[in-house]
Amino acid sequence: MTFKAIINGKTLKGETTTEAVDAATAEKVFKQYFNDNGLDGEWTYDDATKTFTVTE
């Protein structure tokens, strides 16, 4: 399945996608990506659209 992340950061904005077997796996991938890029913020997840949003 394809999962999307919308990034609303102070220094980084945009979208990225990942292929994962479930939402928990996708969340781990996205959180690692955000940690690697120095992002920290509020997380939400919309199961209907398979979209994570992080707002810094």
Rank of each mutant, 00 (worst) to 15 (best):
T51R: 01
V29L: 11
I7A: 07
G41S: 06
E19N: 12
Y33P: 00
A26C: 01
T51C: 02
A5K: 00
T11Q: 10
T44W: 07
Y45V: 00
I6A: 03
K10C: 14
N35L: 14
G41Q: 06
T49F: 03
K50I: 01
A26K: 00
D40A: 12
M1C: 13
K4R: 12
V54R: 02
K4E: 04
Y33W: 15
A23Y: 09
I6F: 05
N8F: 13
M1Y: 14
K10W: 10
T25S: 11
K4A: 05
E56W: 07
T55S: 09
I7C: 12
V29Q: 13
N37G: 06
L12D: 07
N37T: 11
T49E: 04
G14A: 12
T53M: 08
T16N: 04
D40F: 14
T18N: 02
A48I: 10
A20S: 05
D47M: 04
F3Y: 12
K4N: 06
M1F: 14
T44K: 08
T44L: 08
D46S: 04
G41T: 09
K10Y: 09
Y45I: 00
D22C: 03
E56F: 13
D22K: 01
K31E: 04
D40I: 14
E42T: 12
T11H: 11
A23T: 05
G38E: 04
F34G: 03
E42Y: 11
G14R: 10
A20F: 03
T18E: 02
W43T: 02
T49V: 04
V21K: 11
K13L: 10
T11C: 15
W43Q: 01
D22G: 01
A24Y: 08
Y33M: 13
A24H: 07
T11I: 11
W43I: 06
Q32C: 06
Y33R: 05
K4Y: 13
K10I: 14
I7E: 02
K28I: 10
D46H: 03
F52N: 01
F30Y: 02
G41D: 04
E27L: 15
A20P: 01
D40S: 13
A5C: 15
T44F: 09
T53S: 06
M1R: 08
W43H: 01
I6P: 00
F3T: 05
V21F: 09
E56R: 05
N35S: 14
I7Y: 15
E56C: 13
M1P: 12
K4S: 05
T55D: 05
V29G: 03
A26G: 00
T18P: 00
F52E: 01
G41N: 05
E15Q: 09
K28Y: 06
T17V: 09
A20L: 02
N37E: 09
V21G: 06
D36F: 09
T11R: 09
E27P: 00
A48M: 10
V21D: 09
N37R: 14
D36N: 08
T2H: 10
G14S: 11
E19P: 03
F52D: 00
D36R: 09
L39C: 10
T16S: 07
I6G: 02
T49C: 03
K28V: 07
V54C: 05
T55M: 07
G14D: 07
E19Y: 14
I7L: 10
K31C: 05
E27I: 06
A48G: 07
T25R: 05
E15F: 14
V29M: 11
E42V: 14
V54M: 10
